[in-house]
Every structure is written in C-alpha cells, then in structure tokens.
C-alpha cells in the first residue's frame, strides 16, 4: 500500500479561527441494534471509549464513538488500524444482523480551532451553536451551506467536522471564507 492520502493533503488557513484538514482518520460505519450488547461490545472494544447515547460523541484523541442515527454509529480510530478493526467487529457480530463498513476514505476531516470557531460554523449551518446549546460530548449532523456534514467538539474551542471526500475543497473554501479576518461576529 502507498501512504494514504487525505483529500486535501492537510490544507490549512488562519483566520479569526484556524481551519485545517486533518490527515487520514480511521472511520467505520456500524449499523445495527444499538441496544444489543454485542453491538455495544464490538464498538467500545475497538474504540476504547464509552458507548454514546442519542446525539452523543465521545472522542479521545483519534479514537471515538459517535451516535449517527438510532441504528448507526461512527467508530473512529487510527487509519492504519481499520482493516483489523473491521475484521474484529465483523467477527464479533457474526451472529447479529448488522453492517460494518470502512468509510475512512469516503470522508474528509477538518479541525476548526480558536475562540471564533463557533461563529465560523454558525455562518454555515442552521444550528444553535451557543455554548448552552452545543458543547463537547455532542454531535450534530446537519447541512453546511449546500452539503451534508457532521461536527463535534474536541475541546472547549475546537470543533472536528466531517464531510464527504469529494466536497473537501468546497468545505475548506467555505470554512476559510467564514473564518476570514474581519468576519468576526461577536455573538457568542
């Protein structure tokens, strides 16, 4: 295998928040009955974080579990570990109606960092991004301008955001424009 290449090769820009595409991150879609013990064990076993409740996202470094829908999780882990993790999870769920798929390369991952990070996203997504409404531990799947995206917080002033790989440049351009100096709103 060649070294995996992320969609934008780590493109970054500085505005009133810093926007940076992240290197490849392992992501696995797990669909199944989220109440099932086997599903819970398969997910937490490879991710090493607590199982998330509705619209929760637990992230520690590159590892994490995100609640995507009532029957879907996103499992995050280092990119290189994905093939083994997929095999482990598939094996663990062999008796269970479920779907495990590597989606690492289907996505682009961005970090938006800084005190203005909330405002950057609030320009693009129809979501209440006030600290009272959105905080670390939550995930929101929504619309970023014209494309689907999901984001969560990796710290008090840090968001991680995923979109489809093909629109990585579009999303980077959106975030760059929204974070451009002079665009501070001063709302949050």
């Amino acid at each position: 295998m060649s070294e995996p290449v992320s969609a934008l090769d780590g493109a970054a820009c500085e505005g009133f928040a810093r926007v940076a595409e992240q290197g490849p991150r392992g992501m696995i879609t797990l669909r199944g009955d989220l109440a099932s013990v086997a599903v819970k064990n398969a997910a937490t076993g490879v991710a090493g974080v607590d199982f998330p409740g509705q619209r929760e996202c637990h992230v520690v470094g590159e590892r994490g579990l995100a609640w995507m829908s009532p029957d879907e999780l996103m499992v995050m882990l280092p990119h290189a570990e994905v093939p083994a993790a997929v095999a482990t999870m598939t094996g663990a769920l062999s008796g269970e109606h479920s779907l495990v798929a590597d989606v690492s390369d289907a996505r682009a991952l961005f970090r938006i960092e800084g005190p203005g990070a909330r405002e950057v996203l609030a320009k693009l997504a129809p979501v209440d991004l006030s600290p009272a409404a959105f905080a670390p531990g939550m995930i929101r799947r929504t619309r970023l301008a014209q494309v689907p995206a999901a984001f969560w917080m990796a710290g008090a002033e840090t968001f991680e955001l995923v979109c489809f790989r093909s629109v990585a440049q579009y999303v980077f351009d959106l975030l760059k424009g929204a974070a451009a100096p002079g665009g501070e709103v001063g709302y949050f």
Partner: peptide, 12 residues
Amino acid sequence: PHCGVDAEETEL
C-alpha cells in the same frame, strides 16, 4: 422523533 433535533426545513 429519531434523533431529537428540532430541524429547520432546509435540513429536511
């Protein structure tokens, strides 16, 4: 009713 979000029309 699935994810609990009060979604505006543009998400739907």
